[in-house]
Amino acid sequence: MNGWLKDREHLARMAVIFAGALVLFLVVRAVMVPNGFGTYGHFRSGALKDNASHPLSYAGRQACGDCHDDIVASRKGSKHERIGCEACHGPLSVHADDPDKMKPVLPDAKTICLTCHLENVTKPKSFPQIDPAEHGDGGPCTSCHNPHHPEIS
């Protein structure tokens, strides 16, 4: 055996183990790194699809208007014109997909209006607010106001 190597042979054995471990690591890494990792940046590109494929709960006002064009028309020019339908009626994508599958429940006119219009010092001054003890006769708001066009002419 080569004289130089003779007393370094045990070190060579250790070096082979380290080199082997390194190669193994590189091979395992090459196999295990998820597809599409790094395509758009340091992440798995499939994660974009994962995030985009979450199911909808709110259908969006466009979908509501596709069928309920009469309501859209009735809201024209009112202060409530630009409020999303589901802001009051709740998430209705199931209804929008198949109107027979789910019927929306009519919001309770005594509470839903107060969600926004109950007096509170923190609300912007310009926003119409009422104290139900002083405003109206204690009945549902809808007895005087049309929620889709609340202005009393």
Binding site: N51, H54, Y58, G60, R61, G84, E86, A87, F127
Partner: peptide
């Protein structure tokens, strides 16, 4: 997620959709 599943379909986010003001 900025409602990524909505904005990629041309919808707005759930919070914007339901914000009354």
């Amino acid at each position: 997620s900025l409602c990524y599943h909505r904005i990629t379909k041309g919808l707005t986010t759930a919070c914007c959709e339901t914000c009354p003001t």
